[in-house]
Design a protein around this nucleic acid. Structure first.
Lengths: 220, 220
DNA sequence: CGCTGTGAATTATTTCACAGCA
DNA sequence: TGCTGTGAAATAATTCACAGCG
């Protein structure tokens, strides 16, 4: 019923970075890594990497390290590499178009199965090799293409409504680029990426640095 | 020297969401909010909102709540609203172009001051109202336009080198969209946004949901 | 010997719950 | 009265440090 070890969210969020580093090592012909090497490539502390992996099992050899191909397989299984996840994208503006292309070109684990937009001028055009359908037909398109993940790049005002419809239609994993805080019922997952917020966080750090520079100047 | 209260990173990361919710409320003519209302709009618990704000001072009125315009001013000051931050973008591919437009159109706190790309075919074209310069001239462009924040949308292979040059040139805040783990010296900040990683995290949750559905089926 | 896996300690973050003020 | 601000408690995440194994 409840899991023996609920895997920390923070761990899950780091798995793709480990996997990427491993794939790169594999491509360069590296057969084994120590936790120190892999941790450095992924930008974390060695102990944290070992702890993260330990949540899933024991894949290393003491005194030696990890077999790269084995670890790729194990982590890959957890983050769903190998499977090809069907993805729906809603909102084919600048950003949506760029993401559609990106997705189609760059990642073999995800396949764009449908595009939706509310603007009649955009419906019927193509992006990432897929024709844009009318957003009004969201439910039918979901039923026909059965996406497991949706990317939302609509204007902020439309996003919550779109997400509600997606969830009702059975799409429970959503990646949101619209600048709004979205709510979904438990059992569904939203992750949001927000350019403006990211920049404001950086601006906070910049402002902080500027303030410190002033203090240092006063001291000297 | 060291700060009296180091403000938690987690708090900083939430400030932009609070600010956005407040700005929306202000636009709708709401003059006051309780922590409960604002917390709901930002998708957090009321106590967490109050704790976050308390790191900066005491802006509310007991028994009443917060004055929306006052709080906008206070939070805005911390995340650098009001100032216009000059931003440089490196790597004018699909994604770079979309972000350049996005940035120019959507946010008054940030201004695109320069674009760089390594591809001679792209140099000289325009995006977001700015002409693309040669990436080889990064140092000169930085010296001339003095960006405080850089957005990196180069291919993965080029990103670390670009970041090294940016940091050396005095740009200490970087938003990375390239699919690599970047390292910067202490005193600089990188934040990374990675489509593929985000999708893999969602895939993990999807896989988990699928597994649970199977378990439930077995029980019934 | 060297590196993994992991208890224990530490640090960070969130939530509880209520005193205190407008 | 009702809501803020905040000690204290609870929870989550990370790091230390070392036993244990190949």
């Amino acid at each position: 019923m409840t899991n023996p070890h609920p895997i920390p969210d923070a761990t899950i969020a780091r798995l793709p970075a480990y996997l990427r580093a491993l794939v790169e090592m594999d491509a360069q012909g590296t057969a084994r890594v120590s936790s120190g090497e892999l941790a450095e490539a992924a930008g974390v502390q060695p102990a944290l990497l070992r702890r993260d992996l330990s949540h899933f099992g024991s894949y290393g050899t003491r005194g030696v390290g990890y077999e790269v191909p084995l670890l790729i397989r194990e982590i890959g299984e957890h983050v769903g590499s190998g499977t090809t996840w069907p993805v729906l994208l809603v909102g084919v503006g600048n950003m949506g178009r760029a993401l559609a292309t990106h997705l189609t070109v760059l990642d073999r684990d995800f396949r764009l199965v449908a595009l939706l937009d509310a603007d009649p001028a955009v419906v019927g055009t193509r992006a990432g090799g897929v024709e844009v359908c009318d957003q009004a037909e969201l439910e039918q398109v979901v039923a026909a293409t059965r996406p497991r993940i949706a990317v939302v790049t609509t204007p902020a005002a439309a996003a919550q409504q779109v997400v509600d419809r997606l969830v009702a239609a059975g799409v429970h994993s959503i990646l949101n680029f619209a600048p709004v805080t979205l709510v979904v019922p438990p059992g569904s997952t939203v992750r949001s990426v927000d350019l403006s917020q990211e920049l404001h966080i950086l601006a906070f750090h910049e402002a902080r640095r500027a303030a410190e520079a002033v203090v240092e100047e006063k001291i000297s």
